[in-house]
Computed example of a mutant assay.
Amino acid sequence: MSFSYSERLLPSFWQVLASMLVIPAVWLITLPILGEFAIVVALAVWFVVIATMLARSKKLDIRDGRFAAGSAQIPLSLLGKSEIIAPEDMRSQLGPDLDARAYLCFKSGKKGLVKIDVSDKSDPTPYWLVSTNDPRSLVEALSRKN
């Protein structure tokens, strides 16, 4: 039986709000040159920034026996146990306790973090740390791999 899971890590509301600072910056720079047309250019630049943020948003995907997180993918058969990292442990997992060989698919502003062990002995990556909007659903989907 085949199953799938898909999730896109979109920019947070605060990241979109902060990107709006592009509008007055571009407007002030182009105002002496373009006059009234400067606001149109500023809004166009902001739309390009938003489109870039959306296009570069990372995707988590479980399909056809593979798990993809961002630009990396691995067969589900090579994954070990997965666990939800508690919010209070996120800082240590991403800082002092982080193994430099681990694969990170981290998106700031996301509250969920899942640690997925790699059981392949020939792979130097010991585990993946993956940001998610819904850690329980991701762990459940990974546990249904067999």
Rank of each mutant, 00 (worst) to 15 (best):
T125R: 08
R136C: 06
V26E: 04
N146W: 10
A100T: 13
A72R: 10
I84E: 11
W128K: 10
L21C: 08
I85S: 02
V22N: 06
C105H: 10
E83M: 12
F13C: 08
Q93Y: 13
S4P: 02
L104V: 11
A72E: 09
I39Q: 00
V48T: 05
T125I: 12
K121S: 12
A25V: 15
V114E: 03
Y5R: 01
L28W: 12
K145Q: 08
D64A: 10
L60A: 06
Y103W: 00
S57M: 14
S92A: 14
D117C: 00
V130I: 13
F13N: 03
I74R: 06
A100P: 06
S19H: 02
A42N: 03
V45M: 09
S4F: 05
Y5M: 09
S137W: 03
L129F: 04
S57L: 14
N146F: 11
I33L: 15
L10I: 03
R91E: 14
R136Q: 15
K121A: 15
I29C: 07
L79S: 04
E36C: 00
L21M: 05
S57N: 15
L34M: 11
V41I: 12
V114D: 04
G109L: 04
A72V: 00
K115S: 14
M90G: 14
D123A: 04
S71M: 07
P24N: 10
L28H: 08
A51R: 12
G65H: 03
Y103R: 08
C105A: 15
A55R: 10
P11A: 09
S6W: 04
T125H: 04
A44H: 01
L10K: 02
S119Y: 02
R91F: 11
I85L: 03
L138K: 03
A86V: 07
L21H: 00
S122G: 06
V118P: 00
R136H: 14
T30M: 10
F106Q: 06
A18H: 01
F13A: 12
S131M: 05
P87Q: 15
L104E: 09
L28F: 08
V130C: 08
L31N: 02
V130E: 02
P24W: 03
L43M: 08
A141F: 00
